[in-house]
């Protein structure tokens, strides 16, 4: 896989940072402009007069990113928004507005399931029961399914991806770059300090999420399909136990059996829904 180095070495990202892995995929884009709202990547991008991202970057306030990208897209192709789940929460109406306009942009949400840049606070996509500094007893709120919500905007391309499966992610970015209109990729990005696991385990944890069925790789390009490794895990018996995925992360310390059952039920519901989508939105 030919990946140009987009994020230059010696940047301020934490050890084992999933965004740093994910950003590599942008190297397959031709002459992109990257719009970055506030978040971890704001820091990772470095300090004036230097920057660590070897692409044109526009730093913008939290809720504005897809709209700024829309403005840039009036002059240029290949405008990309690289944002976190925080910017997605606070800027959800901006994201939705951009999607219904079918702006010619690609939005990648690199989702580490909490507001990490401010120190691990709960977000809309924080995993069920996960501990954050604002949910010290575990998340009681629901987890929103961002990519499915975006799918319902009837945009030409929506996908989920994982930093544990870069080839799948890169293929999706490439595919998205060839489609005109609004493209959305929801990238699963396990965060070592935020999820409380060792910095060497980022890729392993990301893969365990997929192998346990907790994160599902799929794609919609007119047809809906489960993709990559996740195809194998339609069959529940082939998955690794969910507890294996949860156990390696400090944020799930102290989960009860009932908590695990609740999470499992939620995951089963998602799989059922995706199954219906795969059988319904299918041009072939």
């Amino acid at each position: 896989m030919d990946l140009r180095c987009v994020l230059l070495p010696g940047n301020p990202s934490c050890q084992g940072c999933p965004h740093a892995i994910g950003l590599k995929a942008l190297s397959v884009l031709e002459n992109p402009i990257v719009v970055v709202p506030a978040g971890c990547t704001t820091i990772i991008a470095g300090f004036n007069p230097k920057q660590s991202i070897d692409l044109p970057v526009v730093h913008v306030p939290f809720a504005s990113a897809p709209a700024v990208a829309c403005g840039l897209s009036k002059a240029y192709d290949n405008v990309v928004v690289w944002m976190g789940d925080g910017a997605t929460d606070i800027g959800f109406s901006t994201l939705s507005g951009s999607a219904i306009r079918n702006d010619n942009i690609l939005v990648v949400v690199s989702d580490n399931e909490a507001y990490m840049n401010t120190g691990i606070q709960m977000s809309g996509t924080t995993f069920w029961k996960a501990k954050t500094t604002t949910t010290p007893a575990g998340k009681r709120e629901e987890k929103k399914d961002l990519a499915l919500i975006m799918l319902m905007h009837r945009i030409p391309y929506v996908a989920t991806a994982s930093v544990g499966y870069m080839r799948d992610f890169v293929r999706k970015v490439k595919k998205a770059s060839k489609i005109k209109g609004f493209k959305f990729i929801h990238l699963h990005s396990p965060c070592p300090p935020g999820w409380r696991f060792d910095s060497s385990k980022t890729v392993e944890v990301a893969r365990m999420a997929v192998k346990s069925g907790a994160w599902i790789l799929w794609e919609y390009d007119g047809s809906f399909r489960i993709t990559g490794m996740s195809r194998m895990f339609r069959d529940k018996s082939k998955r690794i136990p969910l507890t294996e995925y949860l156990r390696v992360q400090g944020r799930f310390k102290g989960l009860t059996e009932e908590d695990v059952r609740t999470i499992e039920e939620r995951i089963d519901e998602v799989w059922k829904l995706l199954d219906v989508l795969e059988n319904t939105i299918n041009k072939a």
């Binding site: 070495p9 999933p18 590599k24 080839r167 070592p192 060792d198 980022t202």
Partner: peptide
């Protein structure tokens, strides 16, 4: 290692992995 190094300090030169120790943060990925 090249694909997943977050720091982009793994290079493969003439079929040999080269790690840039100036910048490698030692994450262990």
């Amino acid at each position: 290692c090249y694909v997943y190094c977050p720091e982009n300090c793994v290079e493969i030169v003439e079929k040999v992995v080269k790690i840039d120790y100036d910048f490698c943060k030692g994450c262990g990925i």
